[in-house]
């Protein structure tokens, strides 16, 4: 069955669809968070080396993965926006930036509160942490650039270029623990080797990752609804929305 992508690429058709999708993803995220926290705090045993402090992994790794992944998704939408000049792709990229920034912030924050009891410090300028901090600043840079340019279509282009150039940082973060001597340990989970975690711990981490992922989708869809309304303010379909007519 062929999907008419151009149909869904129209803000007018996507606005109601985004609302329904966001609600579904938010419920899924809530259910998975409950399951993930149950596994992480009740079912999963304590860690042999780190004791209970390791339980931060169930929130640290999902937020760190999301911080990197959202940047790649943002780069994907930016490339589409630049290449095909599609309005909705640019709005998706615009919507993802604040969520990505918050995920990067949470990854750094939870990492600090995990590093203090295990390594003995909240912060160190090693390659993994420094490149994650650069990721946060890239997100903030994209948001700042967006706000600095009045014309939304020009802001789309400028932000897309900055996003694509900054994308080089993502592989640097991912491989930093292999390329350089870092305080941060290597990857426990990768595509190329067996996980270096007990199965139940890994399960908890993956469930929390999906919870985090679905939450990010939900909140980004809600935000893109607001962005569509902001940018299509004068359009007839916006004026005809029940929520606009009745208020």
């Amino acid at each position: 069955m062929a999907i008419n992508w151009y149909h869904y690429a129209s803000p007018a058709t996507f606005h109601p669809l985004a609302g329904r999708l966001a609600a579904a993803f938010a419920w899924l995220a809530a259910a998975l968070t409950a399951a993930g926290l149950w596994i992480g705090f009740v079912v999963a045993p304590t860690d042999a080396t780190q004791g209970e402090a390791y339980r931060i992994i169930f929130i640290h790794v999902p937020t760190a993965w999301m911080a990197m992944f959202i940047y790649l998704v943002m780069a994907f939408w930016s490339a589409l926006a630049l290449g095909f000049n599609t309005r909705l792709s640019a709005m998706m990229a615009q919507s993802l930036a604040p969520t990505g920034a918050l995920m990067a912030l949470l990854a750094l924050w939870t990492g600090a509160f995990w590093g203090r009891p295990t390594w003995g410090t909240y912060w160190a300028w090693d390659a993994r942490m420094t490149s994650t901090l650069i990721l946060l600043f890239l997100y903030l840079g994209v948001i700042a650039l967006r706000n600095a340019i009045d014309d939304p279509r020009r802001a789309d282009k400028a932000c897309a270029v900055l996003t694509l150039v900054g994308a080089v940082n993502v592989p640097i973060i991912y491989f930093s623990v292999r390329w350089w001597n870092t305080l941060h340990q290597g990857a426990s989970v990768s595509l190329t080797s067996a996980p270096k975690m007990a199965t139940i711990m890994l399960t908890g981490m993956l469930v929390m990752t999906f919870a985090c992922w679905f939450w990010c989708i939900a909140v980004a869809l809600w935000r893109v609804q607001a962005i569509i309304l902001e940018r299509e303010r004068g359009a007839g379909w916006v004026a005809a929305l029940p929520a606009v007519r009745e208020t």
Partner: peptide
């Protein structure tokens, strides 16, 4: 984040309503 996005959506709806009031013919005509 959920609260801030909800506030942003409400603000956008309010602005859209004001825009529709300013240009009612355009809103209805489309």
């Amino acid at each position: 984040e959920a609260l801030s996005v909800r506030a942003r959506r409400r603000r956008a709806l309010e602005d859209a309503r004001l825009a529709a009031v300013d240009a009612p013919s355009r809103g209805a005509g489309a």
